[in-house]
Design a protein around this nucleic acid. Structure first.
Lengths: 153, 153
DNA sequence: TATTGTTATACTCTATAACTATA
DNA sequence: TATAGTTATAGAGTATAACAATA
């Protein structure tokens, strides 16, 4: 709190105005995380966005495009583009929902599931790198704090 | 940890694949935070980006554009555009650094400092809204965990 | 009437490369 | 040679609006 405390150590002299600003820290941490994720996933032709869609399709919960948009906090029109791309590459397919013919359910193909397994390895590698300075229990703590912000209900 | 724990409560049935993924939680939390910040700051003609530049210029540390780029994790060319915009509006000025004539130091004008005071109020309002579910001590804990990620040194 | 998916469009953000002037 | 700032450009992400099919 006082003038010459080690807040400077890690962040340099500019930290006075924004160094404790949660929104700024969130933005900067996310920038690192997103960049590392995109680099790691680029090796198998995915990006963070397409990986997240593939992950949700791959877990067997048969999400509609609307479900994906809500959960990923994307506009439905962005989901159209992401699913188009994955479908063109033979990784996912749209299935009609018999209960509601407006709805497209997104499922993975065998190739999609196989690629997802590779992608998970890369995603973990990136995460390990970005969160290297946090212990397992600190990571759990961070996850539960972030869940309160990310899913306000 | 076991199968039917309340991880579903706040995030719905899609949470299996990504609900504990730190990178995803960071992205989603940041999306909320950024959106709320932009909405709150729009009332006074700023965005999160321009606010962060103004904040660093306003605290008297006389940052160079390079300092701003490093701290905000922006490309130097983006800083040019942000400073151009704020300068056009009479909120900041570029000053030559006598010690190194390549360097532009960014300082606030009186109007810039006045607007920054208003902007801080809006930024706090947005932050209060986004982090409403976290107690003061949880917010501090979140800040220090995020600092380890955002400033890896 | 409301919702799902779709198309279109404009704007912001991100990432590179090349250039200039200084060091 | 290297660094600070600048310009230019392309690609990714964000935000809206409007529409068809279906509920």
């Amino acid at each position: 709190m006082s003038a010459e405390q080690p807040a400077v150590t890690r962040k340099g002299r500019l930290s006075a105005a924004l160094g404790d600003d949660l929104s700024f820290l969130l933005a900067r941490a996310n920038a690192y995380s997103l960049a590392a994720g995109n680099v790691a996933l680029a090796t198998i032709g995915l990006r963070a966005r397409s990986y997240s869609v593939l992950a949700l399709a791959a877990d067997g919960s048969r999400p509609s495009q609307r479900d994906l948009a809500d959960f990923l906090r994307l506009d439905p029109s962005q989901v159209v583009a992401l699913v188009d791309d994955l479908q063109t590459r033979g990784l996912v397919a749209r299935e009609a929902d018999p209960a509601d013919r407006r709805t497209n359910v997104v499922v993975t193909t065998a190739a999609g599931r196989a690629l997802y397994e590779q992608a998970r390895v890369q995603a973990r590698r990136a995460e390990e790198q970005v969160f290297a300075r946090l212990s397992p229990s600190e990571r759990e703590r961070l996850a539960s704090l972030l869940q309160l912000v990310a899913f306000p209900d």
